[in-house]
Design a protein around this nucleic acid. Structure first.
Ligand SMILES: [Mn+2]
Ligand SMILES: [Mn+2]
Ligand SMILES: [Mn+2]
Ligand SMILES: [Mn+2]
Lengths: 149, 149
DNA sequence: ACAGAAATGTAGCCGATGCTATATTTCAAA
DNA sequence: TTTGAAATATAGCATCGGCTACATTTCTGT
């Protein structure tokens, strides 16, 4: 008797397994860093006209070699461009990601605050939560926030 | 003129910086895997009396060498114990983490559903979100859920 | 009791993401 | 214009968390 035989339940065609959920979370984890970088580069570009490696590193709380290496990956993925010893800029794809992430970030913060989370904690937790909020959940957040003025 | 001089604002003694938030998220990211493992090992132990590597791997959607290596790290951190070719068991510390994580998991799912997220999406997203919900936010979720019966 | 199947373990590869230490380049002050 | 400081780049190290391939041990059916 194998374990799959235990507690079979009346499962139909499609069913979300534990593995599906964990696999989904792993996939998201691998893109979360890019999301944070693009969002940050967009912010810095708006503030200063460009995103310098030093500023990226300081805002993220990492050393500049770490930021530099991450930017190399961003460039490799077509999300950013830069010339040696100069600022980093987003490509259209990178800018699109930044817009999408920023919208998600703000919505998550708003939702958290709406259900009673103190703003400081909302901002703190949102930095991690934002990456795991699906399109479906995002819509639900919007609907919830709309339905209260 | 350095950039710290720009937009200084009337900041007082303690202020949460962007770096603080990202550093917090990175710290959590490094413990999230342990949280999933301990929660899962607790589940399997309850269901089957022990947690076998094969079952852990299948539920997580990874290969068994991956699960095996993770369990080695769990043991190194004092969260689990096991003998060769035998099941994995949580230490008291591991069991405590499992209880804490499971409570957080359930509360996040309940909150998401309460604000209108479809149960399927709530379960999916919670697998990632759960790790980033602070104690403060957790309390707020509880208060919110209490105040609606 | 044994053989084959299943489970577990180990070796070794890879990329991501952090770090320190050390070049190299650019910027800014004298 | 020079030169020291700041910024950037690169080299090299470590750990984590995935994988495949292969070895070993345990379990199971005959
Ligand atoms: Mn983030
Ligand atoms: Mn963000
Ligand atoms: Mn999880
Ligand atoms: Mn969970």
């Amino acid at each position: 008797m194998s374990r799959e035989d235990l507690a079979p339940g009346p499962e139909t065609a499609t069913e979300t397994t534990d593995a599906d959920r964990f696999t989904n979370a792993r996939a998201i984890r691998s893109t979360a860093l890019f999301e944070d970088y693009t969002e940050l580069i967009a912010d810095l570009t708006e503030e200063f006209g460009e995103a310098r490696i030093t500023d990226i590193a300081r805002r993220l709380g990492v050393t500049h070699p770490t930021a530099n290496k991450a930017v190399l990956r961003l460039k490799r993925e077509g999300l950013a461009i830069s010339r040696p010893y100069r600022g980093v800029f987003l490509t259209e794809a990178g800018a699109a990601m930044a817009r999408e992430v920023k919208a998600r970030h703000r919505l998550v913060v708003r939702l958290l605050i709406a259900v009673g989370v103190p703003p400081e904690a909302a901002e703190m937790d949102a930095e991690g939560i934002e990456h795991y909020v699906s399109e479906t959940t995002l819509k639900a957040f919007e609907a919830y926030l709309d339905g209260r003025g």
